[in-house]
């Protein structure tokens, strides 16, 4: 592991990670503050099952449902996933396209070490964002009158972190394997958004319901951490996938020419 690379990459990613964390806190404070007014007036929306699934059940009558729909199902994974995807692509393929990687790799650092260091730094920056989300949810729930335990909020944060690492690792594997920033971002985003839609709609079609197992969102949200606590098996699958894709990235960058 190249610790100078981890340190520098984290330092360069820190402003974005802190901004996202602060944004997550602010949004959840607003969500919490709105619950007393919105929760009693909207309640449970009568919308199609697939759409409700996409929105985490669309139950706005309870604070758990409200936070699940507003934060856990869409906003949280969107922010954490997007920044992990962008960060992984930018710090590997992006730096290669900017001709920085070629210079760094003329120093005594193996390509796989470089990729591992970038993966760790991007993973740590994703954890900073998740930490902001955790703090924000605790504060938001308190502002909304309470009702979700700290253990369940922590369970969601852990699952969100695992989701972010897996989404980032998809981007990392493509970026390291191809050296193409836009390709990596595009494929990882397609995997994320496609997975979100599949997770919502595939279960409605009996012949296609198996597709949900291909979605990162299935392993992230299926266990409903805000109600049932941490889904250990699902979280382990996401973390194992993140690890596997990081290894793929480390192997992939060794099999091609470096630009610059």
């Amino acid at each position: 592991m190249s610790w100078p690379t981890v340190k520098l990459t984290l330092r360069l990613r820190l402003p974005m990670a802190v901004s996202a964390a602060v944004g997550l806190i602010a949004v959840q404070l607003a969500v919490g503050a709105l619950f007393p007014a919105v929760g009693h007036s909207i309640g449970k929306l009568n919308i199609p099952k697939g759409v409700a699934q996409l929105l985490g059940g669309a139950d706005y009558g309870t604070i758990t449902g409200w936070f699940r729909s507003e934060i856990a199902s869409v906003y949280g994974p969107l922010v954490v996933g997007a920044l992990a995807i962008i960060g992984a692509a930018a710090t590997t393929a992006g730096e290669e396209q900017d001709r920085i990687a070629a210079l760094v790799l003329t120093h005594p650092i193996a390509r796989s070490q470089l990729v591992a260091a970038k993966a760790l730094a991007v993973g740590l920056s994703a954890l900073i964002i998740v930490f902001g989300g955790w703090v924000g949810m605790i504060a938001g729930v308190a502002l909304g009158g309470g009702g979700i335990s700290l253990a369940h909020i922590t369970a969601l944060a852990i699952e969100l972190a695992a989701f972010g690492l897996a989404a980032g690792a998809v981007s990392l594997a493509v970026a390291a394997g191809t050296g193409q920033r836009s390709l990596a971002t595009g494929i990882a985003a397609a995997v994320g958004i496609g997975g979100w839609l599949i997770n919502g709609f595939a279960p409605l079609v009996s012949g296609l319901s198996w597709l949900k197992y291909l979605s990162l969102f299935y392993y992230y949200g299926a266990h409903d951490p805000l109600t049932r606590g941490l889904g250990i098996a699902d979280t382990a699958i996401l973390l194992a996938l993140a690890l596997l894709l990081t290894v793929v990235a480390m192997v992939g960058i060794n099999r091609r020419d470096i630009r610059g």
């Binding site: 520098l8 001709r99 003329t106 610059g260």
Partner: peptide
């Protein structure tokens, strides 16, 4: 390659950094 790079200095044609 790694052993060589310890003993080598390189200036690329279009030097770029962060």
């Amino acid at each position: 390659s790694l052993a060589i790079r310890r003993r080598l200095g390189y200036l690329p044609g279009d030097f770029a950094m962060y």
